[in-house]
Structures are given as C-alpha cells and as structure tokens.
Design a protein around this nucleic acid. Structure first.
Lengths: 131, 131
DNA sequence: GCTTGACCTTCCAGCGACTGGAACCTTTAT
DNA sequence: ATAAAGGTTCCAGTCGCTGGAAGGTCAAGC
C-alpha cells in the first residue's frame, strides 16, 4: 500500500507520515522499485496507534515512549499507567486554566451592555481600571 | 523607565516587549540618548492591557483588535462583546475537547492494573484491539 | 503515442508566540 | 580598573505539522 492509502487508513495526512519518518518516530518505510514508500499491516497498525495517541493529547516524544513500551513485551503496566496518569493531570491543569479564563471573560461580558454605546466593562477590565 | 522595569511592572519579559514592538502590536518605543527604550505610564498601561488580554487567551492579532477598540472612543460595546463571546465559545470548545481526551484516558487507565505485569489495556486501547 | 490527472518524491519555508544565545554597548558600584 | 547588571541587535530554535515548488511515475482515455 502506498503512502496515500496508508494515510487514509490511519487517519493521517501523507505529509504527516513523512514527517514522522523524518523525525524518527517511525522507521524509514520500505520502498517499491519506483521509490514509492510501501506500507503493510504492521506499519498501518503502528500509524493508527500513533494517530490515537496524538488524538489523546500525547506529544510526539511521548508517543515515542508509548511505542517503545508497546513493543517491549516485558514492560510493566505500571510504567504505562504512570505516563497516562501524568497526561491526565496535565489535561486537568489545562482545563482548569481554560475554565479560569472563561470565568473571567464571562464575568467581564456579563456586565457589558453589548449595545451601541461605547461604555464597555470588558475593555475597562482589561485596562486594569476595574480589576 | 527602561524596558526591564516596564516588563516587571507589566508582568512581561523584556524580550516579549521587544517582540511585540517588532510585530507591530505596539508602536516603537521612544529612546533615551543612549539608545535605551523609554516607557511612560501610557505605554505601561498598554503593556498591562496586553498582558491581561493574553492571559485571557486572546491571540496577538486579537489583542491588536482589542487595542484598536480600546483606543476608539466611539466604538460600540457590542463589537467588544462579540469578540469576547467568540473567545468564550472557543475556550468552551477547547475545554470540551480536553474533557473528551481525559474521559478516554481515564477509561483506559481505569482498567489497567498498573503493577509489574506486562498486560496493559491502555496500550491495547491505543493499538485498536479494544476500541 | 500522447495527454491528463492523480499520485509520488525531495527540499525549503512558514505558522504562533515567544525564547536562548551570541556579540556588543552603557551604566553603576566597588 | 573592573565586574556585574542592565541595555542593544540579530539569528536560530521550539512544536507539529502544512504549503508550495519542482520534478518523477502511473493508469486511463483519446
């Protein structure tokens, strides 16, 4: 299977797959006689794994770590769980930060008439007048 | 006041202020005879405005827009509120996406023993075996 | 056989919002 | 006199792709 087909099957862009190869996340693909990259089921499986892990918010280096654990038949499930837990906590922190932003914005917007008049508590809040 | 003092007062790094100047978010600062940038209360006020807006998740172009609205004495508060509302919704979408990631991760982690054995539902889930 | 279009290849540049570092100048304190 | 702490410029790197240029390959239709 060529890169386009593999990309479609894995839910990635062909460019993204070449990029992953270029940064060493995946080994260099086998080539057809014409130079085209060739992908089998094994490679496709790995690409899907990567796609899912990225969708769950793991960075490329983290995916590299997960792939190593995936291929290590003797790994301890505790190692994997530790990575997952760290990511869950990181996501938790991001959510909390976004919620704080949202609360602040909602508070500012709640006091803004949002009509034709120029008076605007949102800008007043940002300028530090009312903080 | 020099850039370091202004940065400290506004909660920014000196490099960040120079960067804002370089991309046109703020006008070029006045200079002392020795070439050092000089900041007064007006400039400081603007820097603080920028710092707060960035902390609320507005991008640099969005801050530019807010600054223009801030300086426009005839703007309608509705224009400002529209920007704020759009940002609130964008934050809402990001939170939802992060929560979905977190739910999926928690689900995977919940079934993982996290002990010395190699069996790991987290990796199984990522590999697509159990989806 | 020829063309068209879709695919593939490589490489370089750019996104956002800084940040690090080099190389240099100025001010202040010891 | 010297050292430390500030300032200046400019270039490169971060992250994870993505766009585009310039070209090679392949299958189908005329």
């Amino acid at each position: 299977m060529n890169i386009g087909e593999a990309a479609a099957q894995a839910g990635l862009a062909p460019k993204t797959i070449r990029y992953y190869e270029s940064v060493g996340l995946i080994p260099a693909a086998a080539r057809h006689a014409n130079g085209y990259r060739h992908y089998g089921e094994t490679e496709l499986h790995t690409l899907r794994f990567i796609h899912r892990a990225r969708a769950l918010g793991f960075s490329v280096p983290e995916v590299e770590e997960l792939l190593a654990l995936w291929h290590d038949k003797r790994r301890k499930s505790a190692s994997v769980k530790a990575v997952a837990r760290a990511k869950i906590e990181e996501i938790e922190r991001k959510i909390a930060a976004l919620q704080a932003m949202q609360r602040a914005l909602l508070h500012l917007a709640a006091n803004c008439h949002g009509d034709g008049r120029p008076k605007c508590p949102i800008l007043d809040g940002l300028s530090g007048g009312t903080k």
